[in-house]
């Protein structure tokens, strides 16, 4: 039995661990992959207050060390379900008359755990295109991170899919190394900043493909071409490229909790700035929560708020 179980070891989860441990609680952190979350993908963080510049990895490693020193228990397990302990289970577990209620059972791929309070800090992940062969070509031409993988496409033809700032920034970044950058967007207008669009239009090796969607992926051992469909004419065209950078936003991964906690229409957990979900003793912190600004600062802030509330449960 733990005081607090935290699901996800990104910035929100590890900050929550630090605060809960400092409040004297026993803490178990469950993480499906490696600790650190999304930020380890970026070489440079320049907007965390008090730290002029740091790599995402160093930032995450610092958080982990801090929590570890305070006595965090950490396990590499994926959470598959959470439920409320029913009376019978509680009685069996306690084998006494003093029946505690409101405990949570957290199931992982390996085993199950009990806790007084649970903090969901599952973050978000890159949204895939959702087309055939996408997984097969990931790391074989398809990438979700231009700054991570761009260098493998030096002098080659690549495409970026998306219409937000990330897509525009990725296209600008890649245009410095690649022979040609095609920017594919399903609408006429970009969601991203006009200034970025203007800068891209000036670049000779950047070409815009508007009102088009990626329909198919072609290639052998690696990606060689994509088939595009024009949204207006319905016409299909083929574009030869060796790299496709997908930048169509993030999405949460809260499906396994949907039976218990309320989610919004996009799958984000419905919880306010107090991080409380509809279930007593279950909190949501960081990018997995419905909110307007998804950054390290807001993830850390949620971690602190959720942990201090969880410590009261």
């Amino acid at each position: 039995m733990k005081d607090v179980i935290i699901i996800g070891a990104g910035t929100a989860g590890l900050t929550a661990a630090i605060y809960a441990l400092r409040a004297g609680k026993s803490v178990l952190v469950l993480e499906q992959g490696n600790y650190g979350g999304q930020i380890i993908n970026t070489p440079k963080v320049e907007n965390y207050p008090g730290i002029e510049q740091i790599s995402g990895y160093e930032f995450a490693a610092g958080l982990y060390r801090q929590a570890e020193k305070l006595g965090m228990e950490y396990r590499s397990e994926k959470v598959t379900d959470i439920r409320l302990e029913d009376g019978a289970e509680a009685r069996e577990e306690l084998s006494s008359a003093s029946l505690e209620t409101g405990n949570k059972i957290v199931e992982t791929t390996e085993q199950s755990y009990r806790a007084r309070a649970v903090i969901l800090a599952t973050g978000a992940k890159n949204r895939p295109l959702g087309i055939e062969k996408e997984a097969e070509y990931t790391g074989r031409g398809i990438s979700y991170c231009a700054t991570c993988d761009g260098m493998f496409f030096r002098g080659k033809k690549v495409a970026v899919v998306g219409g937000g700032n990330t897509a525009l920034e990725d296209a600008a970044f890649l245009s410095n190394y690649c022979e040609k950058v095609y920017l594919i967007h399903r609408r006429e207008a970009f969601r991203g900043e006009e200034k970025l669009v203007k800068e891209l239009r000036k670049k000779e090796n950047v070409e815009f493909f508007l009102n088009k969607t990626v329909q198919e992926l072609e290639g052998g051992a690696t990606l060689q071409a994509v088939v595009l469909r024009d949204k207006i004419s319905g016409e299909e065209s083929r574009l030869e490229i060796s790299g496709l950078f997908v930048a169509i936003g993030q999405m949460p991964e809260n499906g396994v909790f949907a039976g218990l906690v309320d989610l919004d229409e996009n799958g984000y957990i419905l919880a306010g700035e107090d991080c409380r979900t509809n279930v007593e003793g279950i909190f949501a912190a960081g990018d997995c929560r419905k909110k307007t600004v998804r950054q390290l600062t807001t993830a850390a802030a949620d971690g602190a708020v959720a942990a201090l509330a969880a410590a009261q449960v």
């Binding site: 499906q32 992959g33 490696n34 380890i40 590499s76 990931t138 790391g139 074989r140 031409g141 990438s143 991170c145 991570c148 993988d149 493998f152 496409f153 051992a221 690696t222 790299g243």
Partner: peptide, 26 residues
């Protein structure tokens, strides 16, 4: 054809047998 790192390739008797892309737990 390494186009994303980390990529981990397991070779068996000199032949690539398994390829894994991305940071994976132990």
């Amino acid at each position: 054809n390494v186009m994303s790192i980390p990529t981990i390739i397991v070779f068996k008797n000199g032949e690539p047998a398994t390829v894994s892309v991305g940071a994976k737990p132990k």
